[in-house]
Design a protein around this nucleic acid. Structure first.
Lengths: 217, 217
DNA sequence: CCTGCTATTGGTCGCGCACTCAATAGTTGC
DNA sequence: GCAACTATTGAGTGCGCGACCAATAGCAGG
């Protein structure tokens, strides 16, 4: 009794296969965490053998870094589209803050916490996190500079303001894995208040725009 | 040739041994991270057999949680002594912020990031983190209430102010594992500015007190 | 001194992990 | 229809992990 029948093989274009692997890995990273991005787990996801993953990623660390990069890039683009097709910087910023404060952002927060911690042990990931952070900052800074140009925002140093907003956002997201808690509103809207204060907007401006910005839900 | 000579055994009082284990585990957690707190690693630290650790901690998860609790409690006490022996609330707060901004705080930041992430997978740790966070908040809130009583601080809601300061501190600490970066001063001193603003202090008050507070060194 | 208690050991088991490599089977081009 | 190329498999290695358990040795009380 030959216990194993030979497996059906589906042979794919290397580039496509690689992309497929990265996608699957990014999915696992988002749903289950970066430490679950293992050769075996990703192989299972695609119904192939672990050796194949090794073939495309001789070092598993690179796969993890790539998985994070892919997931983070996708999310960055969703939250802060490179070219705002329509709408003022104020509207974009308001939408951005609303999204990063909303519950649906929890998965992304988790991913970032995950990546920042795992960076301690994995060099490839550490570099990737640094790159993504730079991109993230640049995107927000661009938006703010734009607003300064149109005269909507007023700030002495767009970079500093960008960083200040990000510090608050990071601080707010820190507890996704622990918190059963409901924070007081004065805390949850810190990002809005900080942005308004540092950009010379009247308090409540961004909150109000954010509310009227996505009314039909 | 009997390859193994029997080992010398040092028999200790259970309570003392347990404490010793927790201490060693806390040390490993601080230096190498919570995922390195394994039966084998802790046993090696104490020069005993892994089975012994299992004996005191039938579930390894409990050991990890305990290690974090021990390390975090020690650090909390160091940063915010329960009973300030001398000094005004303003001075205490200034010292606290100075310490949590200083470089020596990096190890603690790392530990918290570590714990908050690992909480995703380990329930015992998650509960422990929640407890430590509550303690941490209570301590800072107590200090702020004290300052309100003496009239040094003015805030409508001490709890909210406490949380706001903590959000900023968390946000600032988020990048210890990644950052080669030097942030602009306007960003590194956000915690001071936030505290001053929310407590009705003149800008620079806390920074100045912090500087004159630890002059000789 | 020896008897009983138990803290401690040594060994084992099964798991999931990354990594390696020869063999195999799809695919493409002739 | 055949040959060369290579994407994919299958099998195996060694590692560290948590968990379990019977045997042992240190210590205290009689």
């Amino acid at each position: 009794m030959p216990s194993s029948v030979p497996r059906r093989r589906t042979r794919k274009d290397p580039a496509a296969r690689r992309a497929e692997i990265v996608d699957a890995a990014a999915g696992v990273a988002l749903r289950e965490g970066l430490e679950c991005v293992t050769l075996r787990r990703v192989a299972e996801e695609l119904d192939v053998r672990p050796g194949l993953i090794s073939h495309y990623f001789p070092s598993a660390d690179d796969l993890v870094a790539e998985a994070f990069g892919s997931a983070a890039t996708a999310e960055t683009d969703a939250l802060l589209p490179e070219e705002g097709p329509e709408g003022t910087p104020t509207e974009h910023l308001a939408r951005f803050l609303a999204r990063t404060t909303g519950e649906s952002y929890d998965a992304i927060s988790r991913l970032w916490i995950n990546a920042r911690h795992l960076s301690r042990y994995r060099e490839a990931l550490r570099e990737r996190v640094a790159v993504q952070e730079a991109a993230w900052r640049a995107r927000l800074e661009g938006l703010i500079r734009q607003g300064v140009e149109t005269g909507e925002f007023r700030t002495g140093d767009p970079l500093v303001t960008t960083l200040q907003i990000l510090v608050v956002l990071d601080g707010l997201g820190v507890d996704v894995n622990v918190g059963e808690e409901d924070l007081p509103e004065a805390v949850t809207c810190m990002a809005f208040r900080t942005a308004e204060r540092e950009l010379g907007l009247r308090q409540g401006t961004l909150t109000r725009v954010a509310e009227s910005g996505q009314p039909s839900g």
